[in-house]
Design a protein around this nucleic acid. Structure first.
Length: 213
DNA sequence: TCGACGATCATCT
DNA sequence: GATGATCGTCGAG
């Protein structure tokens, strides 16, 4: 049977998630994150992500094999969502991957593809928005899409959540650096597991630029 | 049962 | 660039 044509709106196949977190993270840039919500489909193009390597990674919620009711979804099959609350205020959305147990990719920032008005309403902001105000940060991204713990543990593709092919990023535009807000993570502090589209205006701070090599 | 802390954000200077 | 907000979660006792 012929394969369906691959368009930006084609779902990513299960095998996409069945790889180590750093590999999936890099490959997620430029892909489309979609949520089917009452006002319609909301779509963001991912411009910044971070990989968390599970039990071997001090910055990961699964470090040392930690397993609690809160992070149970980290141990779900690759391709499931892990949503948690940070600082008692903000939600963060992760995609579970393969590799070390508890490996996942944090979705940090995206640019609007579809549903910008609804996202602005979700964010409670009025025009004009400055670059990065709508979904330039993991908490903002979740607020724009209306994501909370009710989506924790759901599989991408067969729930309201979808990851689509989008427009993969040329390696020349790939920026790599250390992750944000994990100063406590000792040996893992400097691991280059933050990936972004070089110079993109929706990137969260501090900005990350392409390595010159 | 309680204390400490955090994969952040908005606001102010 | 600095700081306060704000509360779920976890580990210690």
């Amino acid at each position: 049977m012929p394969r369906p044509p691959t368009t930006p709106a084609t779902p990513l196949p299960p095998a996409f998630y069945n790889r180590p977190a750093d590999e999936v993270a890099r490959d997620l840039l430029g892909r489309h994150l979609a949520l089917d919500s009452p006002p319609g489909r909301l779509v963001l193009r991912l411009v910044e992500v971070e990989a968390y390597l599970g039990r071997i990674d001090r910055a990961s919620h699964a470090w040392g094999g930690r397993r609690t009711p809160r992070n149970e979804s980290l141990y779900a099959a690759p391709g499931h969502a892990y949503v948690y609350l940070i600082y008692g205020l903000h939600h963060c959305l992760n995609v579970v991957t393969a590799g070390e147990a508890g490996g996942a990719v944090l979705l940090r920032a995206g640019e609007v593809v579809e549903g910008g008005d609804a996202m602005m309403t979700n964010r409670g902001r009025k025009l004009p928005l400055r670059p990065g105000d709508l979904a330039g940060g993991p908490g903002k991204l979740c607020q724009a899409l209306g994501i909370d713990r009710t989506l924790d543990g759901l599989p991408f593709g067969t729930s309201p959540l979808h990851l689509l092919h989008g427009e993969p990023v040329d390696r020349r535009h790939l920026a790599i650096g250390p992750r944000i807000g994990i100063g406590y993570a000792e040996d893992a502090v400097d691991w280059p597991l933050r990936f972004a589209i070089s110079g993109h205006s929706e990137m969260s701070r501090p900005r990350l630029e392409r390595q010159t090599r």
